[in-house]
Amino acid sequence: MRSLAARFLGTTLVMTFLFLIGVLPAGAATISSGLSGTGGLLSLGSSGTSGTGPVSDGSDGIFQPLQSVNLDLPPQDVFNFTTITIDPSVSVGFIRNGSNATIDFLATGDILIDGTLDGGSGPLYLSTPGSITLNGSLIGQDLTLSASQIILNSGSTIDANGSSINLVAGSSVQNNGGLLAGGVITTSPGLIHVAPVPLPASGGLLGWALGLMALLMVRRCPVAGPEGQRGISC
């Protein structure tokens, strides 16, 4: 019995020490601390790189509308920007005229969405070799984001109206409190950085371990027996 208690105590102290020195992650594997998948399945891919789809040639220049706008679709439904910036309170949509073809909304540089980008009733492919940062809202059907890094900040929303959301990042998908609502949510690679789950302070962990030690180290008392015989727990 005492041997089992000693092994348990030893394991507890080792785990506490690892937490104190930072070897074990402080809740880093808890997806629910930052990432929400509403009404769907969150599937983590094992590999993936950005840039596997259409690539912008930059021929449409900088995209940064000063007010909300609905864009006519260009030939082949492809936009070729250098950078894309949608400011707060600005909403960007598309005039599909009944078409449900995939819209390629491409940039050679970074994409920043502080306002709203609404892909409408058809698929939307948002791609850049740079980064995609979302502080506002992205709405549509079958949404794909492809970039070297995808950053979803607090208050941001990706809503695929029950269809799919595909996040493809060359390095990582970093979610800082954004909401993803879709039918099937996939990411490549399978690394998602989320806010760590709060844990007790180091001192609290140490106090917990010492308290457990006090409970397990019961008092020893002597018993009758040959001279030199050790006591037993009582």
Rank of each mutant, 00 (worst) to 15 (best):
G10K: 11
L145H: 03
S146C: 04
I192E: 00
F81M: 10
L4H: 12
G40I: 06
P189I: 05
P198H: 04
L126W: 03
G119D: 03
L210F: 15
I192G: 01
I151V: 13
T133H: 02
Q141G: 00
G48I: 11
P25D: 08
L42P: 03
T12P: 00
I132M: 03
G183R: 01
G183N: 02
V14A: 15
V184P: 00
L66K: 14
C234S: 09
A101L: 12
L42H: 02
Q64W: 04
H193C: 02
G211N: 13
T128W: 06
P54T: 12
A29M: 05
I31S: 05
G140Y: 03
T187F: 07
G53S: 09
F94V: 10
G119K: 03
F19S: 02
N70R: 14
T186F: 06
L179D: 09
C221K: 14
S154A: 13
I165E: 00
S233E: 12
I86Q: 01
G39F: 03
G109I: 06
Q64R: 15
L199S: 05
G53M: 09
M1S: 15
T108R: 11
T52W: 07
G45M: 07
A26W: 01
S156T: 04
T108N: 07
G182W: 00
N135D: 13
A26F: 03
L9A: 12
T102D: 02
F79A: 04
T85V: 14
V69I: 15
T102G: 01
